[in-house]
């Protein structure tokens, strides 16, 4: 029944926006990409119109993705089949599938193309060649690596080890573990501040946000969140953390200095991923249960639109892919 409903949604959407159709006028404007796990669709949101401007159907149920803005590619992990789908974002076409085995989940791409992929059940990060999918090296981390994030210069990778209650800091040049940093219970999502001096870690089970000092590699402070924080972003200028509270269906706006809650914005049900535009005007939230994306105005701290999307959206990314 649910699969059928999903299919109908998909058909309806593909009637409106033919899958594989790229945005007509690509002005290099920042776009938001939403990955829907249940329906297996990557959608592109035009951030001026706040509407879906393009879609591509992927095989299976993709859990997470990353964008290499330089190559204009997205890489989506398929934990059920042990594969990574590679998408050309300029044409919105599937270009290749990398078979790596295991349960790939969190993924990051470095500017030189190299991929870092966590394996949920094998407790490791694999380093891949993006063309062949060949594994260059595997690095052991704590149990159940969830989301990963790479520094801009590509020298360090952070991995949220959900069942180990720690974040792995990995030297991404020497390809070895630098340190496992103990955080709260069940860290799932990560976000680096724009100066990369701080790493925000959303701990799903303890309902806290650990703020890691990236120079010392230790927890600097921690903030309380609402129940089950599953997504986090830092606003440009590093003034605020945005945290998605899965159990309350809301986004908390938390002051990065005082940790005081500045606002709580109601969104759809079971929100997960959250992404902020570079200019700081708007944020986008993946509402997993509702099958929608909430658009938040960060000045007024209100939800200004809810965009219907394929079922099971869990992750959103903002990226300026140029034609």
């Amino acid at each position: 029944m649910r699969a059928l409903a999903g299919l109908i949604t998909l058909l309806a959407l593909s009637a409106a926006v033919p899958a594989g159709t790229a945005v007509a006028r690509d002005d290099g404007q920042e776009k938001v990409y939403v990955l829907s796990q249940d329906d297996g669709v990557l959608s592109v949101i035009d951030t001026k119109l706040d509407d879906i401007a393009g879609q591509i159907k992927l095989p299976g149920k993709p859990a997470a993705f990353t964008i290499n803005a330089a190559s204009g590619e997205a890489f989506a992990t398929l934990p059920d089949s042990g594969e990574i789908a590679v998408i050309d974002l300029r044409t919105l076409k599937l270009t290749r599938m990398l078979k790596i085995g295991g349960q790939p989940f969190g993924v990051a791409a470095r500017a030189d193309g190299r991929l870092f992929v966590g394996d949920w059940s094998a407790n490791r990060v694999s380093v891949l060649e993006p063309t062949s999918g060949d594994v260059v090296k595997t690095i052991a981390v704590g149990r159940s690596p969830a989301h990963v994030v790479l520094t801009r210069d590509g020298t360090r990778l952070y991995v949220a080890d959900r069942e180990a209650d720690s974040v792995a800091a990995i030297d991404a040049e020497r390809l070895e573990l630098t340190k496992e940093i103990p955080v709260g219970r069940a860290p799932f999502a990560l976000a680096l501040s724009s100066d990369e001096k701080q790493l925000a870690v959303a701990n799903a089970q303890s309902a806290t946000l650990s703020v890691v000092d990236t120079a010392k590699l230790e927890v600097l402070s921690s903030a309380e969140t609402r129940a089950m924080p599953y997504g986090v972003a830092v606003t440009p200028g590093d003034a605020e953390f945005l945290v998605s509270n899965q159990q309350s269906g809301s986004i908390s706006v938390i002051d990065a200095k005082t940790h005081a809650s500045r606002a709580e914005i109601k969104v759809g049900r079971y929100p997960e991923g959250v992404a902020v535009l570079k200019n700081g005007d708007k944020a986008y939230v993946a509402n997993w249960f509702s099958g929608s994306v909430s658009v938040l105005d960060l000045k007024t701290r209100t939800e200004i639109k809810r965009i219907k999307c394929p079922e099971g959206p869990r992750m959103v990314l903002a990226s300026p892919v140029k034609p």
Partner: peptide
Amino acid sequence: ALAHGPTPQKVE
């Protein structure tokens, strides 16, 4: 046993 997996399900 992992207290969690990669693909959540839903019922309403």
